[in-house]
Design a binder for these strands. Structure first.
Lengths: 346, 346
DNA sequence: TTGAAAGCGGTACCAT
DNA sequence: ATGGTACCGCTTTCAA
């Protein structure tokens, strides 16, 4: 555990000079610089995060959280974990600006990114997958802002890192599980939020791959429910009536699972349709207890929020670069026996 | 974000006095004490962890890790995560003393606990469930040492907290899953490490409960394999030969799963026996790819190690009491599609 | 180009 | 019983 002071002593210079070299602030004679760098490397210097954190207070490090997800159950859990992290990081002087909106609207998100307070040095963003958002991200990163995408990524952007799940794998896992649980002919109906949402499209692709080699399984219809329970209810009702031979439902939506289940019940098909869903909203758990949903894919919502905040904290307060660009959480399988809401609080 | 200095100014005393009050070091006149406590409460004072961490360096906070688990695959992952945490906490001056042994021996563990360096202020312990260990823990906690039990708990002890899984629920989940995946008559063989290990006994109890209401399912034999692959191979071979009607295997052992699978293969029963296992050792994954193991229960080994170290760090370095006494991780279900070793590194 | 010093929040020790 | 001060490691500012 070598410190800046020790390096300074070893090199016969002052702490200020060492600091200037290690943080590339210039104004140091080249030979001193080389010596300092050499010693620092040899001694395996790594700054003490506590010292950094204490000094960082004066800079009022600020992160903006931008999420177009107000009221969607899954994201409420993500947000809750982030708020909890905020409280503990508050003691270090980390400031959080919340921009939580309901609209999944490119225009709105562009404006949010464009109008950021200039004290903001980091952004946690659930991005809309659109070229214009990519341009705004580029502008921010060029200005030195640390941008982290959460839950959904955006293609070809300059963001520093991503925290979320592998959606393709989520679909693949759900599909494999559906077939393991139902070893008979499968006539599948699918409901998902929107194919415009990158993650949902990837889920569908993963699911398709999982049934590709199974001659007994086929997809009869795909419904887009816009993550809206009421719309989901209506559209799934229509789908089930149009395809009475459906005996399995892949509910890959973020906000339309309950509506889809209610549609199954309304049709009187509760006993002969198997449902695989995503996430563990209270209504989803209710439908699992009832036996309608066989299993659900858990995506660690709280952990997603927690990891995102921690990466920002480490970067802004402790001056630590993120270890990985892609922080992918595992898609877990939950049945009613291992839903365990309390354990997920960790 | 009020500080000690600000409280001191508000109360017209020095920082030292405030510090004495807030940390119960005595030697403060009662009226001043009351005033300081009142102001601290009103201003919602909470110490800055960075300041604490910086000051804690001088005390050389030291934790001892005692685990009788050398060479058991599952615990290697726990240890690996702890070593990684050690590296990052090292920068704060946290010292870790490792006591990793192979013997699951009460005598050895008692001696390890009795002979701890007196600079050790915290212990992470994978305890043997024996009265004598409880007595040693009591002695340590009385002396002010923070004791955390990891992966297995010990009954009626004075340890500060536990990090691990709910074994009963693990058995329950495994049992429910086995029945969901195999909707026919189930003649079940069970292999587990030892009924002397609290967790394994609890797993079995959970499993029994899961099949209690299923007239089609019954347990034909329970084998204790001592978490040893070779012994497991031999004993499972004997079990399978004695009970040729076994068509499902509950492999609840920590170190005998591969041996049990090999026994199934040797018997030529690979096609007609379904196996549910625990953890994701390389050999277990191999048997999943092969189709012999249908699913496995994942117990977050890395996360267990990580959380244990973090609780110790927060306590010793940041002076933060643990939030919860029981830190239970969820039993996750993994099939070959969502094994994803890389994601679990987070 | 460089050094010296103050300050971030908390703790510990010495002097009174 | 209380205040003052030095120190933990790092950053920043000011003076030279």
């Amino acid at each position: 555990m070598i410190t800046i002071k020790e390096i300074a002593d070893l090199c016969g210079v002052s702490r200020g000079t060492v600091d200037r070299v290690l943080n590339n602030r210039g104004n140091v004679k080249s030979e001193k610089k080389q010596l300092i760098l050499k010693v620092a490397k040899e001694m395996n210097y790594s700054p003490n995060p506590a010292g950094k954190a204490l000094a960082a207070r004066k800079l009022k490090p600020t992160v903006a959280v931008i999420m177009p997800s107000l009221g969607i159950g899954f994201f409420d859990a993500v947000l809750e974990a982030m708020k909890k992290a905020e409280a503990s990081y508050y003691l270090y002087g980390l400031q959080v600006e919340w921009h939580i909106t309901q609209s999944y609207d490119v225009e709105v998100q562009c404006r949010q990114l464009a109008e950021l307070n200039e004290r903001v040095t980091a952004v946690i963003l659930m991005p809309i997958n659109h070229e214009r958002i990519g341009i705004e991200i580029k502008r921010l990163t060029d200005a030195g802002v640390f941008v982290l995408t959460l839950n959904n990524d955006i293609e070809n952007s300059t963001r520093a890192c991503y925290v979320g799940t592998d959606y393709f794998n989520g679909g693949l896992t759900a599909g494999a599980l559906l077939q393991m649980l139902n070893r008979h002919e499968l006539n599948i109906g699918i409901t998902l939020g929107s194919l415009q949402i990158l993650g949902h499209a990837q889920r569908l692709a993963g699911f398709r791959q999982s049934i590709a080699d199974n001659a007994q399984a086929k997809i009869l219809a795909v419904t887009e429910d816009q993550d809206d329970e009421i719309l989901s209810y209506e559209k799934n009702l229509a789908m089930l009536r149009q395809h009475p031979e459906i005996n399995a439902l892949f509910a890959a939506s973020s906000g339309g699972i309950y509506g889809a289940c209610r549609a199954v019940i309304t049709c009187g098909r509760e006993k002969d349709i198997s449902v695989i869903a995503f996430d563990t909203l209270p209504t989803t758990i209710e439908m699992m207890e009832r036996g309608l949903i066989q299993a659900t894919i858990y995506q660690h919502p709280r952990r997603q929020g927690q990891i995102a905040m921690q990466i920002i904290f480490d970067y802004l307060v402790n001056g630590k670069e993120p270890e990985k660009e892609l922080n992918l959480l595992t898609n877990e399988i939950r049945i009613k026996e291992n839903i365990s809401a309390t354990a997920d609080m960790i």
